[in-house]
Amino acid sequence: MFTGIVEELGTVASLEDQGDALRLTIAASTVLEDVKHGDSIAVNGCCLTVTEVSTGSTGGSSTWTADVMQETLDKTSLRGVAPGDVVNLERAVTPQTRLGGHIVQGHVDGVGTILERTPSEHWEVVAISLPAELARYVVDKGSIAVDGVSLTVVSAGEDRFTVSLIPETLARTTLGRKRDGDLVNLETDIIAKHVERLLGTNGGAR
């Protein structure tokens, strides 16, 4: 489980195509401070398992590696990553971690597209497309994870939503680098999905 508070920006160091999977190696520092094999790290909101860690020599970069299954490649924007790309990284929470964002599982529900960016003096409003099957889980002032970043929805529509990004978010996450047409991973609030299941609606008539 994660909180949607990005710890650092990593860089894709290499990709190894394995046919039905992808071996992804990322250069990082902060998330590797206490990492061990089998730990979980969210990459742009996708929960991946650490399979290998390489500590760089003096002046060199430290890296970690994960195997990305075809299912993940099909359902997330990780299918489009390339060496040199910058990605959001967050370690899994511990019992002592502050829940600074909201409960994020690292299980991507769908992929959206950056539609429009409207800059202001102190923040930037970003419009993102919303897959129709996810619209019922996104509400005004509710929570959503975009590329693993916990954000508050400003306005929610049937096929899009908007968020406001403060300078800190723009500077410390990949969302400050995204442009119109770029893909982003979306994870809706797990609580909304549990409530729907308990009520037996499953997206049908209410």
Rank of each mutant, 00 (worst) to 15 (best):
T188A: 13
T65E: 07
L199G: 05
T72S: 15
V53C: 14
L134W: 11
T152L: 02
L9A: 00
T152A: 05
C46M: 12
S57R: 15
I26L: 09
D180V: 15
G56A: 09
V87E: 02
V154S: 14
A13E: 14
Q96C: 13
G101P: 10
G106F: 00
V139P: 05
S164D: 13
A135M: 08
E8T: 07
N44P: 09
V104I: 10
T162I: 09
Y137C: 11
N202R: 12
E168V: 10
G19R: 04
E71C: 07
T30D: 13
T25F: 05
A156T: 06
G157T: 01
L134H: 09
G19E: 07
I190A: 13
R177A: 14
V50W: 04
E187P: 02
S150M: 00
P167S: 12
D182Q: 04
L199P: 02
W64P: 05
A27H: 15
L115E: 11
Q70F: 08
L24M: 01
E187Y: 02
S129Q: 04
R136C: 07
T174W: 03
T51H: 12
E90A: 04
T30C: 02
T11E: 15
K75N: 12
G142P: 03
V86W: 12
E33L: 11
T162W: 09
E8H: 01
N185A: 11
T173P: 02
V68P: 03
G4L: 01
E187M: 03
G181E: 01
A28H: 02
I5F: 06
V81Q: 12
Q18I: 08
M1P: 10
I41D: 03
H107M: 03
G45S: 07
L15N: 06
T169K: 03
R206H: 09
G203W: 02
E90V: 04
D67I: 11
L165V: 01
A92G: 15
G80W: 13
E71F: 06
M1G: 11
N44I: 06
T94K: 13
T94W: 09
H194C: 11
D147S: 09
I166S: 03
H37C: 14
S120G: 13
R23A: 12
K36P: 06
Q18G: 13
V139A: 11
V93D: 05
T51F: 13
A135P: 03
S57M: 15
V31P: 02
T76V: 07
G203Y: 01
D20P: 06
T188D: 13
T174L: 09
T49R: 04
K36V: 13
V126H: 00
L89V: 06
I128W: 06
V93L: 15
L134D: 12
R117K: 11
A156M: 04
S150Q: 00
P131E: 10
H122K: 14
V12E: 10
P167I: 07
